[in-house]
């Protein structure tokens, strides 16, 4: 099936509909389909683009926008995909520890798909910046709405992993949230180390 045919048959819309409103049906669709859906990687990549766009809409970046859109977009996309792989591995490992046989490929697809609700951060930001009522802070509301969407994404992942592995919500929650927690810790550690190295190098070159 070609790319255009895949777009035209609108089967992808079923996945997205179930992702937003019917996670049980989504887990069934994932089970019936191929274990790994490469097209799902498009969601973290688009999310990276939308995060950059919403940041630039909020901050009026100027020339920095071009750097964000080139280097920033590439780095953020790669980083998000890598984090997803990391979270998938950790979740699978945790599920194995709970005596549940993990389906790594499908977990990876679910985590990628769960980025879809987070794409709404851009329309929300554009809306907030456009209406801009007095004494309001669009940045704050945008961050809040982004946090709510992230929580919604996590809920979708937890529910779908739960239905897919036919386990309890608590076990699924533990596997996903613990993995996310470790991923965030690892990212923070890398960021702190990179900042120290960069600071050292730049201070030596001044």
């Amino acid at each position: 099936m070609t790319f255009v045919e895949t777009l035209q048959n609108l089967k992808w819309a079923d996945y997205l509909y179930c992702l937003l409103f019917d996670n049980e049906r989504l887990s069934v669709m994932l089970e019936e389909g191929k274990p790994f859906l490469p097209a799902t990687i498009v969601f973290p990549v688009i999310h990276a683009l939308f995060v950059i766009l919403s940041g630039s809409v909020l901050n009026n970046d100027g020339s920095l926008f071009f750097i964000k859109l080139s280097y920033g977009f590439l780095s953020l996309s790669v980083l998000m995909v890598l984090v997803n792989i990391f979270v998938t591995c950790l979740s699978s490992f945790t599920l194995s520890g709970m005596k549940i046989r993990p389906d790594m490929m499908r977990i990876f697809s679910i985590i990628n798909l769960s980025y879809f609700p987070r794409l709404f951060v851009l329309p929300i930001t554009v809306f907030l910046v456009s209406i801009h009522p007095e004494n309001s802070s669009p940045g704050l509301w945008s961050t809040l709405s982004s946090s709510v969407l992230t929580v919604y994404s996590i809920i979708i992942t937890v529910k779908t992993v739960c239905f897919l592995h036919k386990t309890t919500m608590m076990k699924s929650f533990l596997s996903v949230v613990m993995s996310l927690f470790f991923a965030i810790c690892a990212l923070l550690f890398v960021a702190v180390c990179a900042s120290i190295i960069m600071f050292y190098i730049l201070s030596q070159n001044m």
Binding site: L53, S56, V57, L122, P123, V126, V129
Partner: peptide
């Protein structure tokens, strides 16, 4: 459409 609009806005 929102993405296009935001690029125009920027």
């Amino acid at each position: 459409l929102t993405a296009i609009l935001s690029i125009v806005r920027i």
